[in-house]
């Protein structure tokens, strides 16, 4: 379902990539953004974005999992038989997700409670599996780490944007831990933004915005 920027997409023809790192990084964060362009990993993008703080923690968790699983799977790419690669991917990803979950439970129990089962659901997050399948299994470890970090960052940026819109629209302020970072005076909170419909609508508009920007870029490239 990739709409635009496919020319600089995650793939690189064998033997034909110069400054591959930068290209891969730009594709992951912007041109081929996992959520807004490829429409992957929507579940958690909708579920944990009631607050900006939750969205950022979830983003960090996904970056950690995706970077390490890309690194390990890329190192194992010649040793993994093709037929069992899916099981290998799931096992590696699940291991890192367990690490994140145990870490959050031990050091940030309230955050762990707020994210609930969605930390465990990183295992079935299509972005992590998608990068493993489409990139890490065909590329060298260093570049796979860059790809993982870029896609994780692209995911985090979208989550943060949706979280910002929803928290600000739903409560009129941004709260981090105990501190209020930003408050709109006299704003009447629109509770629907915090509830489920707000998530769908905010992300829908964001996807449309990215698509419009992609269209504009294509028109500039081929007038």
């Amino acid at each position: 379902m990739s709409a635009s920027g496919a020319n600089t997409g995650g793939f690189c023809p064998p033997g034909g990539c110069g400054s591959q790192g930068i290209l891969v990084f730009r594709a992951g964060v912007w041109n081929n953004n996992p959520i807004a362009v490829q429409i992957l990993g929507i579940c958690s993008a909708l579920a944990v974005t009631t607050r900006l703080e939750n969205a950022l923690v979830m983003g960090l968790a996904v970056i950690f999992v995706i970077v390490l699983s890309n690194l390990l799977l890329s190192l194992l790419r010649t040793a993994t038989p093709r037929r069992i690669r899916m099981i290998a991917e799931v096992a590696v990803i699940a291991t890192f997700v367990i690490l994140v979950d145990q870490f959050l439970k031990a050091y940030y129990p309230d955050m762990s409670g707020r994210l609930g089962p969605y930390v465990g659901l990183i295992i079935t997050n299509c972005i992590v599996m998608g990068r493993a399948e489409a990139f890490a299994l065909h590329n060298r470890p260093a570049v796979s780490v860059v790809d993982g970090a870029a896609n994780g960052l692209g995911y985090t940026i979208i989550l943060a944007l949706v979280g910002l819109v929803r928290e600000l629209g739903g409560t009129g302020r941004i709260v981090f831990g105990e501190r209020t970072l930003l408050e709109i005076p006299g704003y009447v909170p629109n509770h629907v933004m915090i509830l489920a419909p707000g998530a769908f609508i905010a992300l829908g508009f964001l996807v449309a915005l990215f698509y419009a920007l992609g269209l504009q870029r294509e028109q500039e490239a081929h007038p």
């Binding site: 829908g204 508009f205 996807v207």
Partner: peptide
């Protein structure tokens, strides 16, 4: 996708 998401909302 965008309109599908909004309709789902």
């Amino acid at each position: 996708v965008a309109i599908t998401m909004i309709v789902t909302g």
